[in-house]
């Protein structure tokens, strides 16, 4: 039992490495583009325009403020999907380092999730711009936003630990995860409103952790809803659950990773 916890203080000892890995990830990603880090803000805006053109006619009746709806959904989805799908290869792509130096290996998926967080924070800027332009008043419940961010980090880190470990042993985890992400994306109200989901699929929606995260995020920003507490509860349970399962799974197999890298 105790051996499952030894890596936590080690991560704290290597916080400088964690910082450097996050910085590297962000620097390297935008180094060669002309607009650099501005892409983090521009990209969701452009995506919003596209989604708006495609879907606003269909959903405008049911959803007030469709641009805000779709942009908020999109950036939160990106936070989760991009962090986890790049964390998936975080052990295999750092194989030469893991082979040489003793490190708390979980620092690699963690750094990917944290650089996803930085992207997310940057992409809140265009979101608030859209709020101002569309004259949408911010909700008073904005204080739950840090709580939501904490949940998404825990959840993404837990999922990342599982898929990054699996990838070491089974290389086709990548392809399976890509498909699962697509399925999950359609099961999450990102660009469609929750109200159009037929009753018979309601269960699918309510088993999807991302559904609760979306719900909390939009309520924290601008939507009214009576079920904030319910979503916080389920979202919290899902994120702590994913983290605990991921952490145990990784710790169970971490000594074997080196033999397969």
């Amino acid at each position: 039992m105790i051996s499952f916890l030894t890596e936590i203080p080690e991560i704290l000892r290597y916080k400088e490495l964690l910082r450097n890995l996050v910085v590297r990830d962000i620097k390297v990603r935008y180094k060669r583009s002309v607009l650099g880090i501005f892409w983090v803000m521009l990209h969701p805006l452009l995506m919003m325009i596209v989604l708006n053109m495609v879907f606003s006619e269909i959903f405008n009746v049911t959803t007030k403020n469709y641009s805000v709806y779709v942009l908020s959904g999109f950036i939160l989805w990106n936070f989760f999907s991009q962090s986890t799908s790049s964390a998936l290869s975080s052990f295999t792509s750092n194989r030469s380092l893991i082979n040489k130096v003793h490190l708390p290996k979980s620092i690699f998926p963690l750094s990917v999730v944290l650089s996803g967080l930085i992207h997310f924070v940057f992409s809140l800027v265009p979101l608030f711009v859209i709020f101002i332009i569309s004259g949408t008043p911010l909700s008073a419940k904005i204080f739950v936003l840090p709580l939501l961010i904490g949940m998404v980090i825990l959840f993404s880190f837990g999922v990342s630990l599982i898929i990054a470990t699996l990838t070491v042993f089974f290389h086709d985890t990548r392809y399976i995860y890509d498909v699962l992400l697509i399925a999950l994306m359609y099961a999450t109200p990102i660009f469609y409103p929750e109200s159009i989901v037929p009753q018979k699929y309601a269960l699918v929606l309510h088993l999807n952790p991302l559904f609760y995260f979306m719900d909390i995020f939009r309520m924290a920003l601008y939507l009214d809803g009576p079920h904030l507490f319910r979503s916080l509860l389920y979202g919290g349970l899902f994120s702590v659950g994913a983290f605990v399962i991921g952490w145990f799974f990784y710790n169970l197999y971490k000594e074997r990773i080196i033999y397969y890298l």
């Binding site: 000892r13 290597y14 400088e16 490495l17 910082r19 450097n20 890995l21 590297r24 380092l97 130096v101 490190l103």
Partner: peptide, 10 residues
């Protein structure tokens, strides 16, 4: 910076 922090330096 990256390399020295790999070795655990502040």
């Amino acid at each position: 910076n990256l390399n020295a922090s790999i070795l655990g330096f502040s």
